[in-house]
């Protein structure tokens, strides 16, 4: 395990690459989920308000 993490002395380069990649993938996955959730909440709020005032 220790040898695996050591990556033949290239640990910094290899693990930074994989770490940044995973971070980028996760951020791009979370962004649309949050965006859609916020939009839906906003649209639903405005729809409720429109129903009440009519």
């Amino acid at each position: 395990m220790k040898e695996f993490l050591y990556m033949g002395g290239y640990a910094f380069y290899v693990w930074t690459s994989y770490g940044i990649a995973m971070a980028v993938l996760i951020i791009n996955l979370v962004l649309p989920i949050g965006r859609r959730r916020r939009l839906l909440a906003d649209i639903a709020r405005k729809a409720r308000r429109a129903r009440r005032s009519s």
Binding site: P32, I43, A44, A47
Partner: peptide
Amino acid sequence: MQARAEILERERNTAWVQQLPEVNG
């Protein structure tokens, strides 16, 4: 997923978005 959010934003004032179960409850 991103396209769905984009569609929702562009079409937010249309009837079909207003009738979505996510919006209407």
